[in-house]
Simulated assay, not measured.
Amino acid sequence: MRGRKPRRDPVPDSGAFPKRPYDLVKEFTIALLATVVLTVGLAAVFSSPDETPVTLARWARIAPSDFTATAAAELAGTSGTAQYGPPYNNTPGAGQKIGPMSLQRAAGVTIPINTARDFVLRPLTAAPKAASVSGALAAWRTAPARRQQQWATAYADALGKAPGGDAARLPPGDYGPVPVLISRLLELARAGALDGELVAAGHFYQTDYTKPLLFLGDGSYLEDQARARHLAGDQWGMMNETGNYPGQPWLWLYTLWYQIEPFSSSGNADALVWGLMALFTLAFVLVPFIPGVRSIPRWSGVYRLVWRDYYRSHRTARRH
């Protein structure tokens, strides 16, 4: 018995279908213009402001007193970075802890920074300098460490008492070569040379902005700019945009803990918040393996609401 040949459907005649002209270029142009107008309109209403970058040059021009005081603290080794501890230096007792464990000290010094050398002396040595600056550098390097500390500390203390922190109005004192060094560093910063020196130091590719950011963070100018835009830590910072739109809403849970006790008043807030968020992340990862918790979606029936079209059609099919 011969098998039947499979029946083939007739091939439709392409000429039997109606045709109409179609202008692909026109449609592309209309779509492009509509997209551009929509993008520009939404960007004008919802985009973040185009803020001027905060640089060492801008800082030195707008707030020279703050820059000078910060540079003196870097030279004296009393700035925030100089006393931060790992990963920048081995400051005794520095480093946040979770209980008895110091995460910073466990990781060690991975980005070694000596603030006097890296932020002040090395840029001054690399830049063109007058004879007075060369002499000041030589005097600093040949002096004992204790003497260097006395000079820098005396200069920093005098700046704090000077009217408006103006270095030109300092009373006479034993400051050694510090006034010459700081004055020249201010000149380099105002000219924009210090930004490049700190980024390029020890790197072929100038993409590591760690040192300029740390220098900026040791002063009050950067914090003042952040606070003016409601981006300080106690103002629910850590945002991309400023104004009415928070930008990165997924950070709310992380920043929430900084606003409440015991985190808000703890010197170990960063470590404690990191540890808490690590526990939350681990709990979310283990949800499929925790009895009872993993059954909550099935008990709640939310999935039936999400897939309501499927269950509605399924019930209809069963009735028929």
Rank of each mutant, 00 (worst) to 15 (best):
P6E: 10
P12Q: 06
A16E: 12
Y22A: 15
L24P: 08
L24V: 13
V25A: 15
V25M: 06
K26Y: 02
E27L: 15
F28V: 15
T29V: 13
L32T: 14
L32H: 08
L32F: 14
T35P: 03
L38C: 12
T39Q: 05
G41Y: 00
S47Y: 07
T52E: 14
P53N: 10
P53Y: 07
T55F: 07
A57E: 15
W59H: 13
A60Y: 03
R61K: 15
A63Y: 09
P64S: 10
D66W: 00
A72L: 01
A72E: 03
L75P: 03
G77I: 02
S79D: 05
T81K: 02
Y84C: 00
T91G: 04
G95A: 07
G95N: 06
Q96F: 01
P100T: 12
L103M: 12
Q104E: 15
Q104D: 14
A106H: 02
A107H: 11
V109T: 08
I111Q: 14
N114L: 03
T115C: 01
T115S: 10
V120M: 03
K129D: 03
A130E: 15
A131G: 10
S132H: 11
R147F: 03
Q148H: 01
Q150M: 11
W151L: 04
T153R: 04
T153Y: 00
A154K: 01
A154M: 00
A158Y: 03
L159H: 02
K161S: 06
P163F: 05
G165K: 02
G165S: 01
A167W: 05
P172C: 01
Y175F: 15
Y175M: 09
V180L: 00
L181A: 04
L188R: 08
G192P: 07
G192S: 08
D195C: 06
V199K: 09
V199I: 13
A200S: 13
A201G: 00
H203Y: 07
D208F: 02
Y209P: 05
K211I: 06
P212A: 04
L214H: 04
G219Y: 05
Q225W: 07
R227E: 10
A228C: 09
L231D: 11
A232C: 09
A232V: 06
A232Y: 00
M238D: 04
M239F: 07
N240R: 11
N240H: 10
E241S: 13
T242P: 09
N244W: 15
Y245A: 08
Y245R: 13
G247E: 04
Q248A: 13
W250Q: 14
W250S: 11
L251F: 01
W252L: 13
T255G: 01
W257H: 12
E261D: 11
A269D: 13
D270R: 10
D270S: 14
V273Y: 03
M277R: 02
A278F: 12
A278R: 11
F284W: 11
V285H: 07
V287Y: 08
V287K: 06
P291V: 08
Y303T: 04
R319D: 06
H320T: 12
